[in-house]
Amino acid sequence: MAWQNNPQPPPPPVPPQQPAAAPSRAKGCLSSLVSLGVVIALGFGASQLFKDDDTGTSSSSTGATDSAGDQKSRSWEKGDCGGPDPEKGSDSYTMFDCDESGATFKALEIMDGSIMPESIQCPAGTDLIIEVSISYGGSDAAGGIPTETVCGRNLSDDHPGDAGAGGGQLVEGDCVDNQAQEIACSGAGGTDYKVLGLVKKKGECPAGTIEPMELMFAIGRPYDVICGGKA
């Protein structure tokens, strides 16, 4: 039995930039669309995939990537708040002042954008990851060039990214089932495991590990083995 990360869809082709449309501070020189993409339940690191070596069949996790809407003119900064864009729906996000009624999360950290989602590791307590990308041409087409990543924590008391809560990126203290998919520790049973470590090699797992789950290679992911202990 082997485990592997949920395969990510191939990145969209990057449209060629025309020399005449090079970025400029002057108005009218660049027509661009800045868009946000949120990964529901933070499928980047938390979602795993089990594959049967004999049949080649697989069952994927619940992680999904949704398109999103326009960002306000400036870049995101740590401490900024945001929420669903009222003009574009719940899958689109925009900035709000933290005391505005539309604000639902605060940025714990702002990280570089990446075409390799597995390489993005947000801080502990991150409930959602929002990818900011820019598409040249001013169209509403999905995709674009990743520019930055917003690691957000809910302003409400609902924090699926906390260790053991069943969501967020996989961290020590979370629980997984026997297919290496994250579950809430409160619902763990006899065939489930608690994450004691996330390491590169099985030999690096800490004492108490009863099931070192070797994952298939994923570019940028900082670990290849989930050290499973008694849940």
Rank of each mutant, 00 (worst) to 15 (best):
Met1Val: 09
Ala2Tyr: 02
Trp3Gly: 01
Gln4Arg: 07
Asn5Val: 10
Gln8Lys: 12
Pro13Leu: 11
Val14Thr: 04
Gln18His: 08
Gln18Pro: 05
Ala20Tyr: 14
Ala21Gln: 06
Arg25Tyr: 15
Ala26Val: 07
Lys27Gly: 07
Cys29Phe: 06
Cys29Val: 14
Cys29Asn: 13
Ser32His: 05
Ser35Phe: 13
Leu36Ile: 12
Val38Gly: 13
Ile40Ala: 04
Leu42Gln: 10
Ala46Ser: 10
Ala46Thr: 10
Ser47His: 06
Thr55Trp: 02
Thr55Glu: 00
Gly56Trp: 03
Gly56Val: 03
Ser60Ala: 14
Ser60Val: 08
Ala64Tyr: 05
Asp66Pro: 06
Ser67Cys: 06
Asp70Thr: 06
Gln71Pro: 09
Lys72Ala: 06
Lys72Thr: 15
Lys72Arg: 07
Lys72Val: 12
Ser73Glu: 12
Ser75Asp: 11
Ser75Ala: 07
Asp80Ser: 13
Cys81Ile: 02
Gly82Ser: 01
Glu87Tyr: 12
Lys88Asn: 13
Asp91Lys: 09
Tyr93Gly: 07
Thr94Cys: 01
Asp97Val: 14
Asp97Lys: 07
Asp99Leu: 03
Asp99Phe: 10
Ala103Thr: 02
Ala103Asp: 01
Thr104Ser: 12
Leu108Val: 12
Leu108Pro: 15
Glu109Leu: 07
Glu109Asp: 13
Met111Ser: 09
Met111Glu: 05
Ile115Val: 13
Pro117Val: 14
Pro117Trp: 15
Ser119Glu: 07
Ile120Tyr: 11
Gln121Lys: 14
Cys122Leu: 11
Pro123Gln: 03
Pro123Glu: 05
Ala124Asp: 04
Ala124Ser: 13
Gly125Ala: 05
Thr126Phe: 05
Asp127Thr: 06
Asp127Cys: 13
Ile130Tyr: 09
Ile130Arg: 00
Ile130Trp: 02
Tyr136Gly: 08
Gly138Gln: 03
Gly138Ala: 05
Ser139Ala: 01
Asp140Thr: 11
Ala141Gly: 02
Gly143Asn: 02
Gly144Asp: 00
Ile145Gly: 15
Pro146Leu: 04
Val150Ser: 04
Cys151Lys: 10
Leu155Gly: 03
Ser156Cys: 00
Ser156Thr: 12
Ser156Trp: 00
Ser156His: 01
Ser156Pro: 02
Asp158Trp: 04
His159Tyr: 04
His159Ile: 03
Gly161Glu: 05
Gly164His: 14
Gly168Cys: 11
Gln169Asp: 14
Gln169Pro: 08
Glu172Trp: 08
Gly173Gln: 11
Asp177Lys: 00
Ile183His: 00
Ala184Gly: 11
Cys185Ile: 04
Ser186Glu: 07
Gly187Phe: 10
Ala188Asp: 13
Gly189Lys: 00
Thr191Asp: 06
Tyr193Arg: 00
Tyr193Val: 00
Leu196Glu: 00
Gly197Arg: 12
Leu198Tyr: 07
Leu198Gly: 04
Lys200Asp: 15
Glu204Pro: 14
Glu204Asn: 10
Gly208Thr: 09
Gly208Ser: 04
Gly208Leu: 09
Thr209Arg: 02
Phe217Asp: 15
Phe217Thr: 14
Ala218Cys: 11
Ala218Pro: 15
Ile219Ala: 09
Gly220Gln: 03
Asp224Thr: 08
Asp224Ile: 05
Asp224Lys: 11
Cys227Leu: 01
Cys227Lys: 00
Gly228Ser: 15
Lys230Cys: 08
